[in-house]
Computed example of a mutant assay.
Amino acid sequence: MLTKKKTFWNIVFLIVVFSLTIYGVFHGEDPGAMMEAIRQADIKWLIPGIVLVMFFIWGESIILWYMMRSFQIRLKKRICFLFSSVGFFFSCITPSATGGQPMQIYYMKKEKIPIPVATVILMVVTITYKLVLVVMGVGIACFGRGFMHRYMEEVAPVFYLGVLLNIFCVGFMTVLVFHPDLAEKILTRGLRLLERFRFLRHKEERGRKLRESMQIYRETALYLRNHPGMIFRVIVITFIQRLALFTVTWLVYLSFGLSGTPMWDVIILQAVISISVDMLPLPGGMGISEALFLKIFSSVFGSVTLPAMVLSRGMSYYSELLLSAVFTLAAQGYYMVKARSE
């Protein structure tokens, strides 16, 4: 669980990054003209965008509910939705989304879900979540040369870096899962080297935690081998979940009455931004996401690129942050009432 002190500093960091983002994006711009352009956007296209954000959060809750049933854990879908909301909220406010899963495990413990089971489920969710980005990124890099030349020449290095970082992450997690003994040897030797060169102080507790982590990866590998059909279905749900969030930008495009750019071009460009920023140590890719949007979509949105960015990011990230915050508070209230009644 995140300590109160760590949560406080994460929120401070979020506010600082948000303030710098606001300054960087809007410095020298005419706020009045931007707001006038936003007011002209057709709300009938924006409301479905908020629905898609809710669907994005709900999609993970269905995955959690579905996988828990394989462990004979019967929970109501609304409880899994609270778990999902907690994960998204703390992922949104912590660098590289590191805070989501610890908080999900904390709340899962309140439902008496064993920590190893919760960890294995969330490990599978993480692997599939990043695997979908890797597949999309590699697909764009290999088969979308013309597409990249048309839209992405200026941001191609950032995109390739994002693809490589995601490939490394998925590859590393795959080694941890399917070759835990090899991974344990590599990590143990690495730990000893850090201790030998005085980068870390020697602690037996650190070695014990490493061995416990390796056991979790062994259990994850066993789960993956025993449930290939389920893993495939989780990947499909994750892919649909991701596409739903990327489609928000297409709805913003329609809200301005624009035409001429195919729907899939807009969706793929939004995917490019997510792939590029996913592994960066910034909460929600804040700052770099806005900068990439303004670069990539300038030829798509033209004079309304800045208002389009405000609406797109406002719905796909900031409304997600707000909605997940509301349901995180609901989760806290629910378990406080439950604890008193018990």
Rank of each mutant, 00 (worst) to 15 (best):
S91M: 12
R225P: 00
Y107V: 09
T238F: 07
S255Q: 06
F13G: 15
R313D: 00
L306V: 11
W65V: 01
I22F: 08
V163R: 04
F55A: 15
E212V: 00
K44S: 12
F90Q: 07
M108F: 05
I73A: 04
V16R: 14
T174C: 12
V326F: 15
F301P: 00
I38R: 12
F327P: 09
G260C: 03
Q215R: 12
A118F: 00
F199K: 13
I73Q: 09
E29Q: 15
M148D: 01
L210Y: 01
H179M: 12
E153W: 01
L322H: 06
H149W: 12
P228Q: 08
M54R: 03
I237S: 07
C169Y: 14
V177S: 10
R242F: 13
F297R: 01
V86D: 10
L251V: 00
I237R: 12
G144E: 04
V16N: 12
T3P: 06
I267F: 02
Y151M: 06
M230I: 09
R74F: 10
S255W: 02
H149T: 09
M108C: 04
V132H: 07
T220A: 05
F26S: 03
I115G: 00
W58D: 06
F26G: 02
Y317S: 12
Y66P: 11
P48G: 03
F55G: 07
V304C: 05
L280N: 11
L193Q: 09
L258T: 00
R340Q: 12
F232G: 09
I73T: 10
A183T: 07
Y160R: 08
A331I: 11
L2S: 05
L294D: 04
E195I: 10
I63L: 13
S324V: 05
G287W: 09
V53D: 05
A331F: 11
I273P: 05
I121E: 04
V16K: 15
N166Q: 13
P307Q: 08
R39V: 00
I43C: 00
C142K: 07
M263P: 03
R150A: 14
Y66A: 02
G59W: 10
T21D: 10
V252S: 01
L75F: 03
G162I: 01
I216A: 01
N166M: 04
F26I: 01
V138A: 08
T328P: 10
E290D: 10
E205R: 08
F89E: 07
S341G: 10
Y317M: 13
L75E: 15
Y317A: 09
L224R: 01
R211I: 00
I231A: 13
F168G: 15
M336C: 04
S316K: 04
E320A: 14
E60M: 05
S96G: 04
L82T: 08
K6E: 15
Q215D: 09
V337A: 15
K109Q: 14
M336D: 13
G24Y: 08
A271W: 01
W45N: 10
L243Q: 07
M152A: 09
L161H: 06
V310D: 14
V134M: 06
V248R: 07
S255T: 09
K130F: 09
T238M: 13
I113S: 09
H202P: 02
E36M: 05
P281I: 01
W58V: 10
T98Q: 09
S85Q: 07
V16T: 11
V125E: 15
F143H: 05
